[in-house]
Simulated assay, not measured.
Amino acid sequence: MKNPNFSNKKLSTGDGENHEFSHINLVQFFSPAMGIVVNVPDNWVEESSDSIFQVSDPVTGTQFTASAFQNPGLSFDKWTFMRLSMVEEGMPYLREVRGPYPFKAKTWANFAAEYEGRFPEKNEDSRYVVLCMHTDKMLISFTVVANAKVYAANEALYTWLLQNHLEIYDVIRVKQEG
């Protein structure tokens, strides 16, 4: 969901505007059900569905995607192991190129792993970055999918966005009646 009160406003990077990306205008998207708020360049668009939260760059095809599940009491280590095992078993066309490694943002920390390979419907290799996020109430998988060359050229930007402009809030999903 796009925040209409935030659109096309320049954000402070929090470091005195001396950052190499401080010139980028960002727009805020959020998923109340997942407790996710992300600020991305203002040309990105939301492509969410009932089960996923997704914003993408229509120029490069890069996607930031999240899915969340109520935490049945899993530890962070167990969730990370389960999520990364899903990639290894369900996406045999991808090979691990980095990880798992600690990934720290301003207000949260988790683990990430990076994979590369050719998705069945693609003609070129892609980079697939998986962030395993955990709160007491939610298990969140946040991924970055980009053409491998696009990712290499924009890795610093994507890392900056994730570390400085992705927020996770502890929410409880409530079943709606009717």
Rank of each mutant, 00 (worst) to 15 (best):
P4S: 13
A148P: 00
I52G: 05
E114N: 13
S126G: 05
Q28K: 10
K106P: 01
P120Y: 14
W79V: 03
M34K: 12
K175T: 13
E155S: 13
Q63C: 09
N5W: 06
P102G: 10
S7V: 08
F111A: 00
Y151H: 15
P41D: 05
G73R: 10
G14D: 11
K10Y: 02
T107L: 03
V38N: 00
Y128H: 08
A152N: 12
Y101M: 03
P72G: 12
L94K: 08
V150Y: 07
E167H: 07
P102S: 12
A113H: 06
V97N: 09
A105T: 01
S75K: 09
F6I: 10
F76E: 15
N8L: 07
V129D: 04
V129R: 08
E177R: 07
P72H: 08
N154D: 08
F21C: 15
R83Y: 04
G178K: 14
V87Q: 14
D170E: 12
D50K: 14
V40S: 04
E88I: 06
F111M: 01
T65R: 10
V37C: 08
E114F: 10
A146F: 04
I24K: 12
N147P: 07
L162Q: 00
H23N: 13
Y101H: 03
D136H: 10
I52P: 02
T143Q: 05
R173V: 03
Q70W: 04
V55K: 02
D170I: 03
V97E: 08
M133H: 05
T60Y: 12
G35V: 02
F111P: 00
N25W: 05
E177N: 07
V129I: 09
H134K: 09
V87T: 14
F29W: 06
Q176R: 01
Y93K: 13
Q163R: 13
T62Y: 00
P4G: 13
V150N: 15
E121L: 14
E177Q: 06
K149Q: 03
H23V: 06
E177H: 03
K78T: 14
V171P: 00
T143V: 10
P41R: 06
G178W: 04
Q28I: 02
N25I: 12
M138H: 09
